[in-house]
Nucleic acid binder design. Structure first.
Lengths: 213, 213
DNA sequence: ATTCAGTTGTGACGCTATTCACAGGATAAG
DNA sequence: CTTATCCTGTGAATAGCGTCACAACTGAAT
């Protein structure tokens, strides 16, 4: 974790990492930067630039060794012991996330859910126990949860985030359509579905207008 | 829809637009760029720069008129008649999106779902009829659907996208962890949940290491 | 041994988005 | 009417990211 690294680079590394899994499964041993570029839609220079961040060295004739590259990206991207994640807000979206992430990435385990609705508290969804928000301090400490995905209604987002931060969470993936204020020691990323849909609507319309290109 | 506009600008305009709704509800009549900046976390210069794209003029003493600004952003961002949206892939995430967008933005109505599973086909979820993928051509034409949200398993993503494009869709919001190849007349945006979570994991860890700032 | 084709790693460059900074303008107060 | 204040709109400067292009290298073929 040496110097300042661009968010975009981390995003692309995560993408390469997933692609490498499929290559590994297909028993591919080596891969060129231009092949990774082809599959991701970036340029080969971009791929090589990104891989400079991780501790690896491509062979100038065979490209990158798939196994070695996976190890290098894993070392760079993931905590050795993994990180535990909770979903806060067990509505439709929260449930979908519990299902989606169940066993998807080995180093990121979703281990708990939180809600305030007695109807879902104490239920087990996809192997995850749902706790009442009142228990967030205890459960976050006990299960060493460092990350939460926040899927509560927008007016509940800030208080819920505050509670999680007080409990010791250091990263929040926020799905509520509200901007969170957090101390500088906490990292927040906003996944704003409404914004994404409006962006697609705008640019799709623009493409329709331009007819092609 | 004049000249080339940055994707980020459109995203921020969508954000300002939503914020303005709450101001309007609170009967606020005028707003300064620095107030919008405060609420969104951008700089006031950024806000003013973004608003240059839309047809509006702030008053140098009172700031922007809230109603006037809403009108200007709406004119710029939305098709006068609105756009119809479909959800393709009615799993947990698809259902969550149907619920989430139900009546959320007046100019973007989710009007249909598609799936291949006979168990969900013909059911009505949150006011949306679910059709079989075989009917995509007919339904897209009849309901004038121009956008889809794609929430199918990753190996079904490309064929599903191709079918939608053939039916006339011009914008795709793809939630499947797969990069889509589409003709240049179609706009695609990838919402890669795994990537977002891994980014949060990385930067949260980095903040933990740095202890603050 | 030599040549050759095709790759990596990276300094230099260029482009685009953001921020700075200030001229010009509106309003309220005196 | 004049002054003081605090805003907007925007040209210019800056920063950040991605691309170019090429030296250095590898291994296969001859």
């Amino acid at each position: 974790m040496d110097q300042r690294i661009a968010e975009q680079t981390i995003g692309r590394l995560s993408l390469y990492r997933r692609l490498l899994d499929t290559l590994m499964r297909d028993c591919v041993e080596h891969v060129y930067s231009h092949q990774l570029a082809e599959k991701t839609g970036f340029t080969s220079a971009q791929v090589r630039r990104d891989l400079m961040a991780v501790d690896t060295a491509g062979n100038t004739r065979r490209g990158y060794d798939v196994g070695e590259l996976i190890r290098a990206i894993d070392d760079y991207l993931y905590a050795p012991s993994g990180q535990q994640v909770a979903v806060v807000g067990i509505g439709n979206l929260g449930r979908a996330l519990l299902t989606f992430f169940s066993g998807r990435r080995p180093k990121l385990s979703v281990v708990a859910g939180f809600d305030v609705d007695e109807q879902v508290v104490d239920r087990v969804i996809h192997g995850c126990r749902v706790y009442h928000m009142d228990e967030v301090d205890r459960v976050v400490a006990e299960d060493e949860i460092t990350l939460v995905m926040l899927t509560v209604p927008s007016d509940a987002a800030q208080p819920a985030a505050d509670a999680c931060i007080a409990a010791g969470v250091s990263g929040i993936l926020n799905f509520a359509p509200a901007r969170l204020k957090v101390p500088p020691s906490v990292y927040v990323s906003h996944v704003d579905l409404t914004m994404y849909l409006e962006m697609v609507a705008f640019f799709a319309r623009q493409k329709d207008g331009d007819q092609g290109d």
